[in-house]
């Protein structure tokens, strides 16, 4: 890719995809993406604004908003967004019970890193992570990069079912399963909180741009918090 900060390409007849030339997590790119979304989300005509790690989909309703207008609004937002400071300061604490039945793959990470479960818990819950994107299922939370020593490939054969609230590692990524789903991430813990609960007044606990801090809890606390 070129050395430009970003490239805009059409995505269908009523969408644009902004591509950023990074192949892993970049704090600056994430800030830029979420800043642009904040700038555009209160403008009418945008049907979907979907962040990725290194991309942004801006999908519009073309009825009163032809592609040329959408493109110029997008350009303006991209140029005027500062990448130097985080757009959101909301910090959400997520209690997690690491290891044991809640984190069956903590031994896998222990083998590859040479750390014990206690160290992994400490290292993983140390940083404040940024919520980079949600999807592929409701509430699945893709976070910023995990500490390097914890990086680990996905499972070769995905599990048929991963419980809701599971916290996992996939390559450099770490994240939370919002719903029970099949999945191949290495599961190191689980939160008793419901990341996504359609019956709750605010169904989503987290959204892109939030900061997340994991707080280790015991299995007993997990049961009482449920």
């Amino acid at each position: 890719m070129s050395n430009k900060a970003y490239e805009i390409i059409p995505f269908g007849d009523s969408g644009f995809l902004v591509k950023f030339p990074v192949e892993t997590y970049s704090e600056q790119v994430t800030r830029h993406i979420h800043g642009v979304i904040n700038a555009l989300k209160n403008q009418p005509n945008w049907e979907e604004l979907v962040p990725g790690y290194n991309s942004l989909l801006a999908y519009f309703c073309p009825d009163n908003f032809p592609p040329s207008k959408a493109l110029s609004a997008l350009h303006t937002a991209l140029k005027s967004t500062s990448t130097s400071k985080p757009v959101k300061q909301r910090l959400v604490e997520i209690p997690v019970c690491y290891g044991g039945e809640f984190g069956p793959d903590i031994d896998v990470i222990a083998d590859s890193s040479g750390l014990n479960a206690e160290d992994i818990t400490k290292i993983h819950s140390e940083p404040a992570y940024t919520v980079c994107m949600m999807g592929f299922i409701p509430g699945f939370t893709f976070l910023s990069e995990a500490p390097k020593i914890l990086h680990h490939a996905r499972k070769t054969t995905p599990r048929g079912s991963v419980p809701a609230g599971s916290v996992g590692i996939a390559g450099w990524q770490t994240g939370i399963y919002g719903l029970e789903s099949p999945g191949g991430w290495q599961i190191i813990g689980r939160t008793p909180l419901k990341i996504f609960d359609p019956a709750r007044k605010a169904p989503f606990l987290l959204e892109a741009g939030d900061q997340v801090k994991f707080v280790p809890i015991s299995a007993r606390d997990f049961e009482t918090a449920k």
């Binding site: 269908g12 995809l17 962040p51 990725g52 994107m133």
Partner: peptide, 9 residues
């Protein structure tokens, strides 16, 4: 490829 947005279609 790093996960990126999709649409119907």
């Amino acid at each position: 490829m790093i996960s990126s947005p999709l649409l119907p279609g």
